[in-house]
Simulated scan of single mutants.
Amino acid sequence: MFDVRAVDPRLLNSLTKYPSIPTYHTLDPRNGGLTDPATVFPGDVIATEKVDGTNSRVVLLPDGTYLIGSREELLYAKGDLIGNPALGIVEQLRPIAERLPAGAGIRVYFMELYGGKVGGAAKQYTGDPTQFGWRLFDVVDLAAWQDPLSWPVPRISAWREAGGQPWVPEDALVPLAAAAGLSLTPRLWHRPGASLPPAVVDMHELLTASLPATLVGLDGVAGRAEGIVLRAPDRSVIAKARFQDYERTLRRLVVPRT
């Protein structure tokens, strides 16, 4: 039987984190510029808006309890008297966690919390520091949780970063979100992966055409979007394309006039 109070929280934290997302073009760690090659999507690809907030998670557990966390740490467990107030994550997501039904396994809802005072981009979504929004972008359904929870943290981390988490595919995610009453990050287009541009300049043009402004603005604000996330429908391949990365790279490619 699962008992949240008997499980090492370090294991649960690592097991339910969102993995790192690589950039669509290779990011040069020396200068932050983008270079070849581009990520290959053998099948179809779905583009969604990358919302500039804070990565958050609601973790539903087999014993009927839940956890709320940021990207890096767990902030609250059901029944706690005091929760970590970081970025307003617990305050905003606890009502959602309370109404989501637990199942037999571990299910993790990954959401982007934005607006309010969440980072420097909050003003792109709202002019009211008390106004928050959240969008679901992925769900993990871990039915066979017993073995992973017996592993040491380094093994869990390696498994997670290698794509070991069982993702809910797109055709199941859409009705799951609807049933839970959660809005997804905006879907921009669905096309063959072979149609994605291989060149940096062409991907920047596609970004600009796909998302001239954010689609999730609050109280009438429609500011600058951060970028897009590209996913295979089954989540076997995932990459991100951010405006600032492409703009930084293209500025370096411009030859100064003499």
Rank of each mutant, 00 (worst) to 15 (best):
P186N: 04
Y246Q: 11
P85E: 08
W145K: 03
A102R: 06
D3C: 06
G181A: 08
F41I: 05
G53V: 02
W134F: 12
L60G: 09
A121H: 10
G227F: 02
R231L: 09
L93V: 05
A86W: 03
L27D: 13
S20T: 12
L207P: 11
D147W: 00
L188A: 08
W145Y: 11
V255N: 06
V221F: 05
T54H: 03
T130Y: 01
N55R: 03
T26M: 12
D234A: 07
R224P: 06
L61V: 03
F243L: 13
D219F: 00
I82R: 12
V229Q: 09
T35P: 08
R251L: 13
L218A: 12
F2T: 01
T208Q: 13
L67A: 11
G79Q: 01
L136S: 07
S20Y: 04
P22W: 02
Q165R: 13
T54P: 11
E73Y: 00
G119I: 06
V59N: 09
A232K: 04
A177E: 11
D202Y: 00
L136K: 02
S210R: 02
T258P: 05
G181D: 09
A77P: 01
R57H: 06
D138S: 10
W134K: 08
T126C: 11
R71K: 14
A209D: 11
G223R: 05
I106G: 12
T65S: 06
T208P: 00
G32S: 09
S195A: 15
L93R: 03
A232G: 14
P186V: 06
L142W: 04
V51A: 11
R57F: 02
L67W: 10
A194I: 00
N31G: 14
A86K: 12
R257N: 10
P29V: 07
